[in-house]
Amino acid sequence: MSQTDPTAAGSGDDQPTPADQLDQTLGVVWTGPTEEFPTQPWPSGRAERDRPASDTCSVCGGVVDPDGYCTQCGAKAKSVRDHWIEAPADWVAGVCDSGLVHPHNEDALATAATAEPGRRAVIVVCDGVTTSQDSDLASLAAARRARDLLWSDQPQGLGLSRTQAAATAQRLRQAIQAANRAVIEATAPDSPNPASATIALAEVAGSTCFWATLGDSRVYWLPDQAEAVLLSQDHSLAQAQIDQGVSRQAAEASVLAHTITKWLGLDAVDLEPSAGQFQLDRPGWVLVCSDGLWNYASSAPALRQAFEQAASQPEPTDSPLALARRLVDWANGQGGHDNVTVGLARCGV
């Protein structure tokens, strides 16, 4: 599923420096030309709400008509917007799925990665708020905008790691601002119920992972040989209770647990993300997801358990796409009550 680098081909002396020749001690990162990402069969917006993702009916095996319904049993096929995968490189992949209960998929996913493992990747997950208008369009626009900005805007700092880190952290904030503008552009100005969405983004740059979130989409770090870590802090009523000493289990079981306190949108009040960075100093997985996954495995150890099951059942795999699919299938097996999105990057190898 890896994508070759079309801009690098034939560019002669402009070939980027391979990552293994980077001066890691100085924290110099690659600043060469950016790669294109595949545009098919990813959804682009309103039209894809009804375009079927597959021409085979998942209920009866009949042929799905371009109108989105089976020609035999009439079952509604999942649309391109309801379910899609992204696999920009062998080491980065994600799945965005409507789940089993929601009629639409308001989650969104956008990824980009260098073909060369571990050098550079961006994963963005957004979760549109179901009760707001056109939030499926808004969340997709936001995820794309954030990815495009992170992927194309190479920091041209002095190449020192501290400067680099500060610049990248600043760019993540800018990406969230850009995503917010994308949501607003996708919203009718007079909407009584303007679209809103969460955002979680992770940028892998060599041995460092930068992350930022707004709302309750999350970033986890799952090292192979050490304890898993939940990196992000939700902006939700549940998190507010946890901060006051209530146990995670109790807080997240409450009716209002999923009420978010920060979001992207016309009516956003605070765009300051939960953000940070950490060293990818050992082999492991960066996992970015929506609450459709962590609803069934919130704590880092619980998520770790679900991940290990996915990695080993029915047969062992270390393909990020296979793992993302299995995690989505697992969430759907738990009830699939919400849209589910999982993005994974294999790091630190």
Partner: peptide
């Protein structure tokens, strides 16, 4: 007239 399906299911009844 269609056979009843589970709650939440959407399908086409006629083209």
């Amino acid at each position: 007239r269609l056979p009843a399906k589970s709650l939440g299911v959407e399908q086409l009844a006629a083209r």
